[in-house]
Each structure stands twice: as C-alpha cells, then as structure tokens.
Amino acid sequence: MCLGIPGEIVELMADRADFAMVSVAGVKRVVNIGLLEDEELKAGDWILIHVGFALSKIDEEEAAHAIRMLEGMGQAYTDELIALAQSDLGVQP
C-alpha cells in the first residue's frame, strides 16, 4: 500500500531550493519539495510526503486528521514510515 504522510517543514535548505528538512513523526528527514515549486513554502508549513517527495501542501488541521487516520491503520502506517526512513535522496542535511 502506498500512503502519503504529513510532515512539518523545519527549514528550507539554503543551498538546495528543491529540498527541505522535514519532521515526520518526530524524525527529521530531508525531503524533495521540487514538485511544489509553485507553492510558497516556509518553516512551519505542513506537506504530504510519499517516499521522500512532497506531493502537496496541507494545513495543520488536515495534517492532524491525516495523522490520526494513519495511526489507526497500524502496520500500513508503520511500513510507510519505514519506507520514508529508508529513502535516500543523496542530500546531506
């Protein structure tokens, strides 16, 4: 199963405009935000992520709802977090 999981942007990477440091379930991870080039992103914004790529910008209420729903899915959510943790975009924080 493929899931999108919410993450909060911690910082935009100054030297790489297409990457951001994002907190997902308490773990900080570099995420490619290149697909959202038309969005004005900043620290504190929430994004929907799948295997290291931001798919859309979402608001905090939507993120909280999605997290509750995903946690209720049990193993599928855990598997998606593992996939995110294993994704390597080749960018050092």
Rank of each mutant, 00 (worst) to 15 (best):
A66F: 11
L12S: 01
D88E: 12
M21I: 15
L48F: 01
E8Y: 09
I5K: 01
L36S: 03
M1K: 00
A20P: 05
I82N: 11
L70E: 00
E61K: 10
I33M: 08
E37C: 13
V10Q: 00
L12F: 06
D38C: 13
A83Y: 05
E62S: 09
R16E: 15
I9G: 00
K42A: 12
L89N: 02
R29Q: 13
I82E: 11
L41H: 05
T78R: 07
I47K: 02
L55V: 05
L81V: 09
P93W: 10
A20Q: 04
M1Y: 02
E11D: 10
I5E: 04
E80I: 10
E37H: 14
H50N: 06
M21Q: 04
P93E: 04
I82P: 06
A85I: 13
E61R: 12
M21S: 04
G7Q: 07
Q92N: 04
I49F: 00
M1E: 03
L70W: 00
K42P: 01
L70T: 03
A63W: 11
Q86Y: 12
V24F: 14
K28S: 03
R29T: 12
M69F: 15
F19G: 02
G90C: 07
L48H: 02
R16Q: 14
D15V: 10
I67L: 08
E40H: 10
S56T: 05
C2N: 05
I58M: 05
L55K: 01
G90L: 05
E40S: 13
L48T: 05
G72S: 10
S87F: 11
E80R: 11
P6R: 05
D18P: 04
V51T: 10
R16I: 13
V91Q: 03
H65M: 11
D18C: 02
F19L: 06
E40R: 07
V27I: 03
F53H: 08
E71N: 05
I5H: 00
G52D: 11
A14D: 15
L3T: 02
E11H: 07
I67D: 00
W46I: 01
G7R: 07
E40N: 12
A20V: 07
V51Y: 15
K57L: 13
H65T: 14
Y77F: 13
M13L: 12
E8T: 07
D38W: 13
S23R: 14
A14P: 13
E62Y: 06
